[in-house]
């Protein structure tokens, strides 16, 4: 019988580490209160964006999905409404990031990607919350507030991601 050796490359390790970091942030974030249960600011996007810029879109997508899955399994919310919201948000941010990478010229920087991801994340979460859980008119009143918050967090996340990438560049 042949032993199959899986060699974890240095890159695999990095990605694993980053995913772990993303999961940690995800878990911490789940402890924070929210106006609508389950809707989160998406701080874990910092990792997604950093990975997107450093390793490309497909890796970032992978990290994102893993984050949501692993995070929910660890917290114990797998397949719960909260999980669906996280997943919806993550899928929406990933989907908007792909076309965003095709931006001509220098394209978007970490802040730009981050804003797009955060807003898409929030919209995804809101749509799922609104259609599946609280189809109430009053929810729509919250939407502009949530989007504003998403934009702000997007900017913040983008700046942090940018720092992260700079230090990595310096470090390497």
């Amino acid at each position: 019988m042949q032993q199959i050796e899986l060699e974890a490359t240095r890159e695999d390790m990095r990605i694993a580490w980053l995913t772990a970091l993303a999961v940690t942030i995800h878990i911490v974030e789940s402890a924070l209160p929210s106006p609508i249960p389950g809707i989160k600011p998406g701080l874990a996007n910092i990792i997604t964006i950093a990975v997107l810029i450093r390793y490309g879109w497909s890796t970032a997508a992978w990290v994102s999905i893993l984050r949501v899955l692993a995070g929910s399994l660890l917290i114990g919310t797998f397949l719960s409404p909260g999980f669906l919201l996280s997943l919806g948000g993550a899928i929406c941010s990933i989907m908007i990031l792909k076309p965003a990478t095709y931006m001509p010229g220098k394209g978007f920087g970490p802040v730009g990607y981050s804003i797009l991801a955060a807003v898409a994340h929030m919209c995804g979460q809101f749509t799922i919350a609104y259609t599946l859980f609280i189809p109430h008119q009053a929810m729509l009143n919250l939407l502009p507030v949530l989007i504003t918050a998403a934009i702000l967090f997007g900017i913040m996340s983008g700046i942090i991601a940018s720092r992260l990438l700079q230090t990595r560049n310096n470090g390497n």
């Binding site: 220098k106 978007f108 920087g109 802040v111 730009g112 797009l116 983008g158």
Partner: peptide
């Protein structure tokens, strides 16, 4: 920190 595209995006959203 902000690329041109970033700035355009930011102003549009605001």
């Amino acid at each position: 920190l902000l690329t041109t595209a970033d700035k355009v995006l930011l102003s549009c959203t605001v």
